[in-house]
């Protein structure tokens, strides 16, 4: 039954695309390590370095004094790693395949359809985003920064984050006209990374700013993994999951619509 599902065109099509990327990745797997390296550096400089100055973040972990600044920052960096891992794949790499390599022209001459290509690329980006998170998550756990059994929710959480941003990246890439346009993407991504409560709690903002920050997909992603890893389970986690699911689904629909326009001659 599972075998039949695996062989149905709806699954086999996207799976063939994932397989293509896996074949390439066999040659370039070390790039994964480079992607893990970045959040580890942030964790060391911000978490450990600045953490030594900050000590405890008030109101964290139900007032548990063993929860320090580094414990607060680590889950946010994890969410960011999942985001970047997935989005780099569907923006930079897919731009190259769309505009430079024309990879999809030959793929679309086979039984595969545009939606197979889109789903396959998002599935692959999701795998990559998750792989980065798992390796980084293992590093975080090794530092002893996970405080609750709820931390197992980090894995499905990062899958969801990777899906949402992979789909968003796929929608974004259809609007990109040249490599210069990636600067505009950075213009959104960098401030979001800095201000979406990555390094300090939402409470530092005035209420109107808080609302704006709460609308950011990265804020919701951080909520999704930070709360469980600190052992705080509340409605906010469910809401964050719902937000990312809807955000990802809408992005996917937009990406499909745009790809139909771009790829059909």
């Amino acid at each position: 039954m599972l075998r039949a599902l695996w062989r149905s065109p709806a699954v086999a099509g996207p799976a063939a695309l994932v397989e293509r990327n896996l074949v390439i990745y066999r040659h370039t797997w070390y790039l994964l390590l480079a992607e893990v390296f970045e959040p580890v550096l942030y964790l060391l400089s911000m978490g450990v370095g600045i953490g030594a100055l900050v000590g405890h973040v008030p109101g964290l972990g139900g007032g548990d004094p063993s929860v320090g600044y580094v414990d607060f920052v680590a889950p946010a960096l994890l969410a960011t790693a999942a985001m970047n891992g997935a989005m780099n794949e569907t923006t930079f790499n897919i731009y190259g395949k769309l505009k430079m390599l024309h990879t999809y022209d030959s793929i679309l001459a086979t039984p595969l359809r545009i939606r197979d290509v889109a789903l396959g690329e998002v599935a692959w980006a999701l795998l990559r985003g998750t792989a980065v998170t798992v390796v980084f998550g293992a590093a975080v756990a090794a530092f002893g920064l996970l405080h609750s059994p709820w931390a197992v929710l980090i894995l499905p959480g990062s899958l969801l984050i990777a899906f949402a941003f992979a789909a968003a990246g796929l929608a974004v890439v259809t609007y990109i006209r040249s490599w210069q346009d990636f600067q505009l993407v950075q213009l959104v991504m960098l401030p979001m990374f800095l201000f979406a409560t990555t390094f300090y709690p939402l409470g530092v903002y005035a209420r109107p700013v808080q609302i704006a920050v709460e609308c950011l997909p990265l804020y919701q992603s951080i909520e999704l993994v930070r709360e469980p890893s600190l052992g705080v389970m509340n409605a906010g986690v469910g809401l964050a999951a719902l937000y990312l699911l809807v955000f990802g689904a809408l992005s996917m629909a937009l990406a499909l619509h745009r790809l139909e326009r771009t790829l059909v001659p």
Binding site: R7, P9, A12, G13, A16, E19, R20, V23, I24, L101, H102, T103, D105, S106, I107, T110, P111, L112
Partner: peptide, 21 residues
Amino acid sequence: DTLDTELTVRENLLVYGRYFG
């Protein structure tokens, strides 16, 4: 030619065949 330049010669054939299931 829209060959997959990220793949080797043989891989181009192996991967393409998978698109046909």
